[in-house]
């Protein structure tokens, strides 16, 4: 005779997953599966027809490469700018640190529409950007940064910087300062202490920040649509065009699938290398942990 299933503290919590999992299945997994499926069946039976059409036309390849290029540049730009800043902010104390954090979190939680709009104002023909440069005599007639790609680069950097700063900060806060002291007691000169101890211990933050910025940049729509001018197009813009203007769903789904697979692979890699999910000190979740999720 089998015993009735024994009670255990875990068993009861297990059932709590059912409701949220069903929700995610219905409104996340199935829609994405549907995108993959639609991309495979353009009217006449299952096949790769949509992908052939996609890559036959040079436009998609150009847009995809451009998207990857922009994402890579933004990632590198953010890393170079954010690393020293995160280092300084991690060293700050008391109210100065709180102020710096507020200055990072305010843009982090402000909508991309608003921030892109602000840059649109700054970079328009009579905007502050041209006025300042004209006033200083650097240029003699107004530049057109909206068409040259400059506005897009600056806007994307501005939007993505907090995504790099927050993971870097949370990694740097976890570095035990006594290790640097130990290194100096053992006779390491300051630059060696930095490279061998600090830099190495902050690498998880670097990896997390880069993955987050790169993955998020790949999917950008609002900023390039508003600041990209007519010259540049990113994959999300192409998908929007294919779906809502051309009403070509197989084609839009094929573009979407390429983007989906690309981001999923990167996301899996990021989960593997990044975040070992061990116990962390409880910190205000606004800062560190949510950075992973807000994208």
């Amino acid at each position: 005779m089998r015993r009735p299933r024994p009670w255990s503290p875990e068993a009861g919590y297990r059932a709590w997953i059912i409701l949220p999992a069903l929700f995610m299945l219905a409104f996340f997994v199935i829609p994405l599966g549907r995108v993959l499926f639609t991309s495979l069946s353009p009217a006449d039976g299952i096949g790769l027809g949509a992908y052939q059409a996609l890559f036959r036309d040079a436009v998609f390849s150009i847009v995809l490469l451009e998207t990857l290029r922009i994402a890579l540049m933004v990632t590198l730009g953010c890393l170079v700018l954010a690393y020293p800043v995160a280092y300084v902010v991690a060293e700050l104390r008391g109210r100065w640190q709180r102020l710096a954090l507020a200055m990072i979190l305010l843009p982090f939680w402000t909508s991309a529409v608003i921030r892109s709009y602000a840059w649109l104002v700054i970079f328009q023909r009579q905007g502050p950007f041209n006025q300042v440069l004209l006033g200083l005599g650097v240029i003699d007639r107004p530049l057109r940064p909206l068409n040259s790609g400059l506005a897009l680069d600056v806007g994307m950097l501005h939007i993505m910087l907090p995504f790099m700063l927050l993971p870097l900060l949370s990694a740097m806060w976890r570095i035990d300062r006594r290790l640097l002291l130990a290194a100096s007691v053992l006779g390491a000169p300051p630059w060696r202490q930095f490279v061998h101890v600090y830099l190495r211990l902050s690498l998880p933050g670097v990896a997390a920040g880069c993955a987050l910025v790169f993955i998020t940049s790949l999917g950008f729509y609002i900023t390039p649509a508003l600041l990209g001018g007519s010259g540049t197009m990113m994959v999300s813009q192409l998908i929007y065009q294919q779906a809502s203007r051309l009403l070509n769903w197989p084609l839009a789904s094929a573009s979407g699938s390429v983007l989906l697979i690309l981001t999923s692979v990167l996301f899996v890699l990021y989960q593997r290398i990044g975040q070992p999910r061990t116990a962390r000190r409880a910190r205000p979740p606004v800062a560190g942990d949510v950075a992973e999720g807000r994208a």
Binding site: R3, P4, P6, W7, S8, P9
Partner: peptide, 23 residues
């Protein structure tokens, strides 16, 4: 205490087996 379910055996409290009983 009842947090862990044993793979086998009995835990007798005053002669009564309490395995499977919630804490």
């Amino acid at each position: 205490a009842g947090f862990v379910t044993p793979s086998q055996g009995q835990v007798l409290v005053n002669g009564r087996d309490i395995v499977g009983e919630p804490p």
